[in-house]
């Protein structure tokens, strides 16, 4: 492994991160650049990144966290979600985890301070979560469940006529904050418009309005013959808005509708089921948190935090972005461990 410098990223590192990413996982740099710019640079609430730079200036490793504005018991806080990470194959001597650990250590020192981030979180599979828990201080909040509604299922009846649903309509960016439960994303129009503008996708932003006041929102993506609800926020007690929004998302789609939650409130879950969604295990992906503020305990979060795909990300992080597990060696007493030991 050659020499490198660990440092926090600057705005000028965007192209270098994208190029390094492309080298690490063999993808088109332009496509990656648009994703990195969208997720880290365009986020209206900002992002925090650390990089490892070679002496010639090339970025050879990166750990990026996109900021998520939260409202926790009425207090506005900023969480960080692990968004992307790569380690140049040349610098993986001794395993990816060596440099990943170094990046993560620097990230903690630089950004996991109460003035900056209240917590960082991410989603992982069994192996990576084990490693992050043992070595990186993550605690599991929950495992995911998937909800699936078959095509052409009878739609949920509306609970009244007081709710108007708009799609990709005017006024999105100026829309007001949504009420959330004890712990949820601080949705405003600007955040939602950014979330619905994923590069290369035709996502749709749906909003529920009562007497001109925004009461709920959802983001959907139609892909591969399935409509996926990526984001969903409605005040739990507002069943009229939940019904109206669910009705709009499922009526006349002609395709199955899927979504994934980690934790959610009981009324919302029951209304999804009433609308024809069946709960299935799916990959049961771990959502883990590393709190900076001590009161953000995993057990409290497991009961109070409403988490959607747009909050946690579409895929478990490391396998997607590094291209291999960050767990080296895998956890003892596991199949992966045995395979590793046999090698």
């Amino acid at each position: 492994m050659g020499h490198f410098e660990l440092r926090t990223a600057t705005d000028e590192d965007g192209a270098g991160i994208a190029d390094g990413f492309a080298r690490a996982i063999g993808s088109d740099p332009n496509q990656i650049r648009s994703h990195v710019v969208s997720a880290l640079h365009n986020n209206p609430h900002g992002s925090s990144s650390v990089v490892a730079a070679a002496p010639d200036g090339r970025i050879i490793a990166h750990l990026g966290v996109t900021h998520v504005p939260m409202l926790v018991n009425g207090e506005p806080l900023l969480f960080g979600r692990f968004h992307s990470c790569f380690v140049d194959p040349v610098y993986r001597t001794g395993g990816v985890h060596g440099l990943f650990n170094a990046l993560d250590n620097l990230f903690r020192e630089a950004f996991e301070i109460r003035e900056h981030l209240a917590a960082v979180f991410g989603q992982w599979d069994e192996m990576d979560w084990w490693y992050l828990r043992r070595a990186r201080g993550h605690d599991a909040v929950a495992t995911s469940i998937d909800l699936r509604c078959p095509a052409n299922h009878p739609v949920l009846e509306l609970g009244g006529e007081g709710i108007v649903i708009t799609q990709d309509g005017e006024g999105s960016e100026s829309a007001n904050l949504l009420k959330v439960g004890n712990c949820g994303v601080r949705h405003d129009g600007k955040l939602d418009a950014w979330r619905a503008a994923a590069p290369g996708r035709s996502d749709h932003l749906w909003q529920a309005w009562r007497a001109g006041e925004r009461t709920g929102m959802a983001i959907t993506r139609d892909i591969g013959g399935v409509r996926r609800i990526l984001d969903w926020t409605v005040e739990p007690e507002d069943t009229e808005s939940i019904r109206a929004l669910l009705h709009a998302l499922t009526v006349d789609t002609g395709v199955p509708v899927h979504t994934r939650f980690w934790t959610s409130d009981v009324p919302t879950l029951l209304l999804f089921q009433e609308a024809g969604f069946q709960v299935v295990a799916g990959p049961e992906v771990y959502l883990s948190v590393r709190p900076v503020l001590p009161h953000l305990h995993q057990l409290w979060l497991s009961e109070n935090w409403h988490v959607t795909l747009a909050d946690a990300g579409l895929h478990p992080l490391p396998r997607l972005t590094i291209g291999e597990s960050i767990v080296v060696p895998p956890s003892p007493g596991t199949w992966g461990g045995r395979q590793h030991d046999a090698e």
């Binding site: 007493g333 199949w335 045995r338």
Partner: peptide, 14 residues
């Protein structure tokens, strides 16, 4: 749950 043998890794148990 915590396994102590490789055949019963968490993915298998889940």
């Amino acid at each position: 749950a915590r396994p102590f043998v490789p055949q019963l890794e968490p993915h298998f148990l889940r």
